[in-house]
């Protein structure tokens, strides 16, 4: 919840923004084990510590409900850390510059580009990747809807599309076709499966509302 602390007459808006409560600790490459002592939930300090460009720093990321500690360079993007450091390769990278949406994940419930987000900026945020939609080995409803409607071809943009739709239906339970088109308008599909993606999004919304089984 975003709050302007300085003024009493602030309105209470429903915030989709990210409020960050993460705190960073820094370790040299050679001192990993020692530095683990400073955990991510350490006391807030009034002064932040600068993370040097050339060293790895320990951060804690909340990914799919689990706290994951990882050593990162300041410049590493969240998509890089998810894929190359943590092996969560369901999140794809198509452009590495925020122009395709293949890397879309949820951050505090809203879709974001993980390729355009520094991992160090993602501390204290609830991160959900496509792997996080699974119930063990079972597909989540949005994934199931994509499967049923054949809402993909090569599949490389698909995780991102699914996360965009997941974010949409979580925030808008009964989206119109235009809502859906706008909702996935930050996700390119070069194969051109958009029409099927729209159908999948409608199905996903219906499933969430529980009307899917009634027809």
């Amino acid at each position: 919840m975003a709050k302007n602390q300085r003024d009493k007459d602030v309105e209470t808006t429903e915030s989709t923004g990210l409020s960050r409560r993460g705190f960073l600790t820094r370790v040299g490459v050679g001192a990993v084990s020692v530095a683990a002592a400073k955990s991510a939930t350490a006391q807030p300090t009034s002064r932040a510590q600068a993370l040097p460009a050339t060293e790895l720093s320990r951060i804690t990321l909340n990914i799919n409900g689990r706290q994951r500690q990882v050593l990162v360079e300041p410049r590493w993007t969240l998509s890089h850390v998810l894929r190359e450091e943590l092996g969560l390769t369901g999140t794809k990278v198509g452009c590495d510059r925020g122009e395709c949406g293949a890397c879309t994940i949820l951050m505090n419930g809203v879709p974001r580009y993980s390729c355009l987000t520094l991992a160090v900026e993602a501390e204290g945020v609830e991160i959900v990747t496509v792997e996080g939609l699974m119930d063990r080995e079972n597909l989540g409803p949005t994934q199931e809807a994509f499967l049923t409607e054949d809402a993909f071809q090569c599949g490389y943009c698909t995780s991102g599309q699914i996360m965009a739709v997941e974010g949409l239906v979580r925030n808008n339970p009964d989206p119109s076709v235009d809502d859906i088109r706008t909702g996935v308008s930050g996700n390119l599909c070069r194969c051109g499966a958009y029409a099927h993606i729209f159908a999948a999004a409608q199905r996903a919304a219906a499933e969430r509302q529980g009307v899917g089984g009634e027809s």
Binding site: A2, D9, V10, E11, T13, S15, T16, G17, V110
Partner: peptide, 24 residues
């Protein structure tokens, strides 16, 4: 976080914190 949020000011205007996401 003090830079986030949208508020109606007393005179009927609006104040928008600079960190408020565009979506908001």
């Amino acid at each position: 976080n003090q830079l986030r949020g949208i508020a109606r000011t007393r005179d009927g205007g609006i104040r928008i914190g600079s960190l408020t996401p565009i979506a908001e």
